[in-house]
Every structure is written in structure tokens, then in C-alpha cells.
Amino acid sequence: MRVSSHQYHINTIQNIQTNSSNFNDKSVQLATNQRILKPSDDPLGAVMLMNLGSEIDSLEQYKTNMNAVNYSLGQQEVQLTGIVNQIYSLQSLITTAADASMGDAEIKALGQDMSIAFPAIVDLLNATDSDGKYYFSGSKTDEKPFQLDASSGDYVYSGDTLVRNVSVSDDSSVINNIIGDALDPGADFLNAMKDYLVDVNNPPAGGVGDKSREMIDKLAGFLSTISGQVTTIGATMASLDSITTSNEDIKTFTVNLRDDLSAVEYPEAFISMNESMAAYEASMQVYSSVSNLSLFSYI
């Protein structure tokens, strides 16, 4: 088949461009240690790299989520532990007040100490984070969870019952908050303690022995509830430690797989680069020689 001079020039230029492009691609691969520079280099490998990258991004997001949950639950645990300490103080004071031999002045003195410990409990139940968001209000984080109702004078829970769940792996999530209504359902303890303080600060003729013993029972129930929530937080944070370890193992495997898939085979790439350069130089030499020929060269 006869090939025209024009077609020859086109074919030769295409060969030069192809070899030049191959040389440049291999040079970049060797410089970056990236085998796949564009999807056409390895379509299936490019899809796999995209999927692996997406999985690594998800694992990074899970890590961020777990750090946030750990911090939030840790702060809530601090508040609840503070409540437990105040409960122990009240327990000692109320047990002393239950003694029938206590006089009015002594009971009032105990009442003054109780009047310091009790507001501390209310403050801890209404604790906020660094942004001023209430820990124990459910999703209504701008609403103080326990407030005195203006009409009844009793404490009421003003939050909601939404427990926020945060994803920490592909198939699991953990709680991120404790609900105030689960700490003191119906504000029962707060109202009972509020009413008890009225009697302690103004002791009736028969003393406060019976009321103190009733209050001790309510205090024990409140302590049990708070301690149970502290245990829930502890169990959740322990599970986060386990999930963190598992996620880190998965991430390490995924990163290694991605690196293996994308890494350049240096000997193969180096040989291919040299072959492209040799072919490029040969094509240039031939093209240069042929381009200088004309019909007059044969006359």
C-alpha cells in the first residue's frame, strides 16, 4: 500500500507525541509514586482507589465523632459525679436531722448547710458546655432543663426526651447525651427536697424525724438513678475505646491497600520511561532525516 508523504508526516508526529506523553507520564509517576494519574491509566484501579479513599474519609469522620462524644460524655460525667458528692453531703446532714433528740436550733443549723448543698445539685443538673448549651435538656440545648414554675412554685423539667445518637462505625452508634428527665423523673427529688427544706428551716413542734427518714429514702433513690447514669456513660466510653481500636485497624489495612494499589512499580516504570525516550529520540532522528529529503535528492 502506498503511503502519501502527508500521511507519513502525520503518523510520525503522532508517534513522537505518543512517546513524549508516555515519557512524561512515567516521569510523573516516578516523581510522585502514583501509578494512576488519570482514570484511563487503570479504570478499575481508579474506581477502587476512589472507594478506598471514601472509606478512609468515613473512618476519619468516625474518629472525629468519637472524640466529640468522648469529650461531651466526659463533661457530663463530671457534672453527675459532682451531684453524687453533694448527695453524700445531704445524706449525712439529713441522717443527723432524723435524730429525735435534735433541737430546733440544731435542725436549723443543719438546714443552712442543706440549703448550700441542694442549690449546688440544681446548678449541676443545669450545667452548660463552653458554648452555653445545657447538657441535660435533650435537643432543647438552649433551654434550662430544671426550672421553678411561676404558677405552682415547683420544679419542672423543661427539656425534651431526645437522645442524640452519633455514628461511630459503619454499623453502630452511641448516645451523646443524658436526658434530665431520666436523672430526676418529673423533678420528683428536687420538689421533695425543696419542701423538706421548708420544714427543716422552720421545724414543726414534732420535729423533722419522720420527714427526714422519708427524705433519706428519696435521696437513696435519686443516688441510685444518678449512679446508674454514670455507669451508662462509663460503659459507652469503654465501648468507644473498643470501636476506636477496631476502626484504627481497618484504617491501617485500607491505607496500606490504597498505597499498594496506587504505588508505582519502579523497575517497570523506569524501563518503560527509557523505552519511551529511546523511541521518541529514534522517531525524531528518522523524521528529521526524512523531512530533509526531496525529489531533487534522487536526481
Rank of each mutant, 00 (worst) to 15 (best):
A182C: 06
K140C: 03
A279N: 08
T12A: 13
G111M: 06
I178H: 08
A120Q: 15
S167K: 14
D99K: 15
L37W: 09
G138C: 09
P119Y: 08
Q14C: 12
L37Y: 05
E60M: 14
D25I: 11
V28L: 13
A269Y: 10
V28Q: 14
Q75E: 14
S294W: 02
A238D: 15
I175L: 14
Q76Y: 12
S115N: 14
A68W: 09
T18A: 14
T81D: 08
Q86G: 11
I107D: 04
A150F: 02
M193I: 05
F222P: 03
M114G: 07
A278R: 09
V230I: 15
G74P: 09
A238K: 14
F222M: 11
V264D: 02
P267D: 12
Q34E: 11
D181W: 04
Y71D: 14
L93P: 00
N256H: 12
G234V: 13
G209F: 09
A46I: 10
K144M: 15
V255K: 13
I107M: 14
D57M: 10
I179C: 05
G209W: 10
G186E: 01
L219E: 02
E106Y: 06
L52M: 15
N191T: 01
T225P: 03
L90V: 10
I299H: 04
L162N: 13
I243K: 10
P145M: 00
V286Y: 13
Y155A: 00
L190C: 03
G207C: 08
Q29Y: 00
V208L: 12
I233L: 09
I83V: 12
E143S: 03
N126S: 03
T128L: 07
A100V: 11
S291K: 09
H6A: 15
I83P: 00
K251D: 02
G159E: 06
P185G: 12
M50Q: 15
S272K: 15
Q86V: 03
S294D: 02
P43K: 04
L90H: 09
S242A: 14
Q14R: 15
P204I: 04
E60G: 14
K63I: 04
I175C: 05
L293H: 02
N165S: 11
A269Q: 14
H9L: 07
K218S: 01
S289W: 11
P204T: 01
Y134H: 11
T254C: 11
S224I: 01
P204N: 06
V166M: 00
L30G: 09
V3Y: 10
S139E: 10
M284S: 09
E281V: 04
A278T: 06
G209D: 13
